[in-house]
Design a protein around this nucleic acid. Sequence first.
DNA 1: CGCAAAAATCGCAACGCTACGATAAACAAG
DNA 2: CTTGTTTATCGTAGCGTTGCGATTTTTGCG
Lengths: 327, 327
Amino acid sequence: MGEVAQLADVSPSTVSLYLRHPDKVSSQRAERIQTAIDRLGYLPNTMAGGLASSRSNVIGVIVPTITNSFFSATLETLERHLRPAGYQLLIGNSEFDESREEELIRSILSWNPAGLVLTGFAHSRKSISLLAKSDTPIVEMWDFGQKGLDMVVGFSHRTCGKLVAEHFLAKGYRKAAFLSTSFQRDIRAKERYQGFREDMTNAGGSVVLRELQGRSNTAETGELVRELVSDHTDLEAIFCANDIVALGVLLECQRQGWPIRDRLAVAGFGNQDFTASTVPPMTTVEPPSQEIGQHIARMLLARLGGSLTEQETRLDLGVRLVAREST
Amino acid sequence: MGEVAQLADVSPSTVSLYLRHPDKVSSQRAERIQTAIDRLGYLPNTMAGGLASSRSNVIGVIVPTITNSFFSATLETLERHLRPAGYQLLIGNSEFDESREEELIRSILSWNPAGLVLTGFAHSRKSISLLAKSDTPIVEMWDFGQKGLDMVVGFSHRTCGKLVAEHFLAKGYRKAAFLSTSFQRDIRAKERYQGFREDMTNAGGSVVLRELQGRSNTAETGELVRELVSDHTDLEAIFCANDIVALGVLLECQRQGWPIRDRLAVAGFGNQDFTASTVPPMTTVEPPSQEIGQHIARMLLARLGGSLTEQETRLDLGVRLVAREST
DNA sequence: CGCAAAAATCGCAACGCTACGATAAACAAG
DNA sequence: CTTGTTTATCGTAGCGTTGCGATTTTTGCG
């Protein structure tokens, strides 16, 4: 930066001022400075800037996995909205593990981030105390219904389960199954199950549960479907933890020659693109993946912009049932 | 850090030394320092550290999109291997846009990153000069066959196309189509097309090309398939730019009642999990998504560790054809 | 043209840490 | 118990910015 100042024949302070508030510098010098910057290929040192101003343009985001269209859609939207305001995302993978999350929180906090976005409400004690000590704005996303540490943007997974239960009941299905990825990995799938089960049983129906070992896997899904059907010959409908699992069910039925809906109704979660084109088209629930990113960006920017007005701090974006021919 | 030093009754230098080289500090003080750190909940300030040592633990990665299982698998593996060595990934989304990539390179470079990973060989002039000026280790990934700026880890997409062509020819298919996502967005799909086309036509076959407007979309895919089949009644096989598109083809055929393979053979790219379970199971090509991440981590760590030995700097990981019943 | 107010520029002291040379403590050997 | 050697600790000078108050220049107006 010194070099730029020298070449433009101004003081370093002026260069810094120009970089931060270009309109506070006279147009002639602004021009000289910009020329010098271009000529030298000068890149400001973010760390020095961050240190001096004791704040950074980093926003940390911790998701359980990025190999998952739910979260990656949120991440992409979040980035798209935050970048124009000059923020950089620092993305961490907790791998569904609280202690991993704690480690990441520690590491991100040491960057003095302008904000921190976490997935869900489950955090280790230590994490919570770390977060409390720092005064970083926190957003918990992809869930709703608990107190939360600071801001919350998401939807209720219980309600989502209830929505599907209502739909099943309206269609006359009473004997249902919930086919899930591992609850240990995905607490939110468990919440959907609980909401689903509660409403089904309240209405005199029944729900049997099956968990996949690991992540969505169509081969294992097929096995579980065969097992379910042979154990529960009167099974009428399956609600799956996500669309890929539901696709697995659809394909297994097809392989077995069981007509979807007449023999077995299937619903997924995610409303991924392909669900509209399966045969038959799949009933699913659409989570507000993009909206989550968008509203987090909005809230965070408002908070960081320092609009002092006591603003909304918790946002339930709800989910939408997309009823198609598979139920 | 001053506080920690005071509480542990040592000098700040010793605390710093302990943090960086714990074994250079006597065990009694080490213990006192650790206690003080825990008690105060001290978190080192990464920016100050980075500024002082003029290097950072940041490794930048720029991918065209993270909403894509190819790249996200690489990202996850990369993170898994780099984190234990103390590195943090700074992920950027170029959205298949060179000027966006340039902006990201600028922004990441201003962090003084320890390394930078880019996708593919296509960069703007300015980007290249920026990279040349900085002495950051660069890795270009997910492609192979060009010179490259520094290190390269990937595979040849032309070869991939040729592999499928060979397979089609062996099965007796001569009249083929390539059904792609937009080439403008995905140059590498274009390279697969070129390799595919070259070998098909050399063997006396023919290839017709269709591009989807945007990203993989099963509805649009269906339309294009119908159009293809009515325009080219003698069409025997379709090679798709990815598995989702191939799934779209499969589903469309099913909807139309066209028997897969007998009427139309289909091959995808990606070997995503569900491809094994479609009806019939789908032929596809498996790119080394995870291996790419793994080898980049290895190369980068070797380079950063300063093993002075002139090491390999370009790595072709190849692809594997997974032949199943859809061809 | 002179003077006050506003705008533009500058100098300097941080920011919190690291690296290096200097100093002190511990240890070994004569 | 001295001296040389190794090991542990400490002081200090930056690292490249920012932000504030001080200083200079420009502007507006009687």
